[in-house]
Write a protein that binds this DNA or RNA. Structure first.
Length: 415
DNA sequence: TCTGGGGTCCTAGGACCC
DNA sequence: TCTGGGGTCCTAGGACCC
């Protein structure tokens, strides 16, 4: 018989909002939201009124007139999130952190040291509350997927252990939307064929699911409905892409607006690439129009790049192509740049041949190398004196920055 | 119910190669 | 010149997650 794994999923409750209530006890027990224009996180007291993350601030206020908005203490989120996950790390080195406020842990080999999984989970919850000051919910099960569902069911501030003997009983009464990978579209498609619970999903033939949802999603959901989840803990992932985006409200689709915004975004993306000693071959630009429809254009270069000016030029070309294909669109509401196909060691890429038509873009040529060296110099100055100390003339975008830079950094999934 | 930012994975069609 | 089959890469779009 195969050894049965035990996976634990730990998830801090209403994380940003709980941190704010911890930092300012007068907020405890009250409906609060972190954010302003958009709700980044809502306390459970606010959730009781229907306030949800991602909701426009105005809508949230309508639902909950006494809702109190608080500014985010972003550095504290990082510190306290790290501290909580470190408590989990005291029980096993096999930790997979999936965001600032949640992690999987494989505690299969830890039972001899720390007792049953239920005892470990109880201790983790008690210690996080005592040492960090925050509520955390924990799910324990044989698989990652089930552990994750268990922690959702446990919220707020609870613990759910799924006995391997009764896991299908536990799973099959739950609605399909608690599953990983079932969002609004998939939920609606399943509802159309009368599938609302995971049990009903399990009874649906695999062929039907694949026809309805596609091979990958259908196959995956069918397996998960029977709790066949082969995934193991992955301790470190490397980012596969690095990107940045900027919502613009409504702006005219002019060269000036697009150039300024893309240079700013290219600066952010390229700086982060260089900081990680990485570079990428594929550049993707997304343009969202006023009606929120969006198009993407991408190009794969013969060699990886991480220089700000080169990235900006490639991005501007792509944006021009995208807009050229939609001549009727005069207003844009968002621009984004993403770099993928990442390779290590940006320095080495300088030596590779490069065959873009434009001389200056060649990383292997003198001008390309000079740009890269200039970028590194700018990076170094910023490291010492701050990011605003020096820029490319486009960094002072400032005007409609609805989300603070600190939040952007939290959203960067790396590590 | 039209709201942010940073990501991952999948699909489908076409180009190109053997 | 038509025909078959398989594989890889690229591009565009979509669904989903935190």
């Amino acid at each position: 018989m195969a050894a049965t794994a035990t996976i634990l999923h730990a998830d801090l409750d209403a994380f940003y909002a709980s941190v704010e209530q911890l930092l300012d006890p007068s907020l405890a027990g009250k409906p609060i939201a972190v954010g302003g224009g958009v709700v980044l996180a809502a306390s459970y007291e606010a959730k009781a009124f229907g306030v949800r993350g991602g909701m426009p601030g105005r809508r949230a206020r309508e639902l909950c007139p006494h809702l109190q908005f608080v500014g985010g203490h972003f550095k504290e989120y990082q510190r306290l999130g790290d501290a909580a996950i470190e408590v989990v790390g005291d029980f096993t080195p096999l930790i997979e952190r999936i965001s600032i406020d949640e992690a999987f842990a494989d505690v299969t080999g830890s039972v001899h040291l720390f007792g049953t999984p239920a005892e470990m989970a109880t201790t983790i919850r008690r210690r996080v509350r005592a040492e960090v000051g925050l509520p955390i919910s924990v799910g324990v099960a044989r698989t990652k997927h089930l552990a994750k569902i268990a922690s959702q069911v446990a919220k707020p501030d609870g613990l759910v252990v799924v006995d391997p003997e009764t896991e299908l009983d536990f799973l099959h009464d739950l609605p399909v939307e608690v599953m990983w990978g079932v969002g609004p579209v998939t939920r609606a498609r399943l509802a159309q064929v009368g599938v609302f619970t995971i049990g009903q999903l399990a009874e649906t033939p695999g062929r039907s699911l694949e026809r309805l949802l596609g091979r990958a999603v259908g196959g995956k959901l069918g397996a998960l409905a029977w709790n066949r989840d082969p995934r193991e803990i992955e301790r470190h992932h490397r980012a596969k892409s690095v990107g940045a985006q900027s919502a613009l409200g409504k702006q005219p689709a002019t060269e000036a607006v697009i150039g300024r915004t893309l240079r700013h975004l290219a600066d952010r993306v390229a700086t982060r690439l260089r900081a990680k000693s990485r570079a990428g071959r594929t550049v993707t630009v997304r343009v969202r129009f006023a009606d929120l429809r969006s198009v993407t254009r991408s190009v794969t270069l013969p060699a990886a790049i991480s220089a700000t000016t080169i990235l900006a030029e490639v991005a501007e070309d792509l944006a021009r192509t995208a807009l050229g294909d939609h001549p009727g669109e005069k207003t844009i509401s968002l621009l984004a740049i993403s770099v993928s196909h990442l390779e290590n060691d940006a320095v080495l890429q300088l030596e590779l041949p490069f065959e873009l038509e434009d001389e200056e873009r060649r990383p292997g040529t003198e001008k390309g190398a000079a740009r890269w060296v200039l970028d590194r110099a700018v990076d170094a100055v910023r490291d010492r004196f701050g990011r605003e100390a020096v820029g490319y003339g486009s960094v002072a975008l400032g005007a409609s920055r609805s989300v603070p830079d600190e939040f952007r950094q939290l959203a960067e999934k790396d590590l």
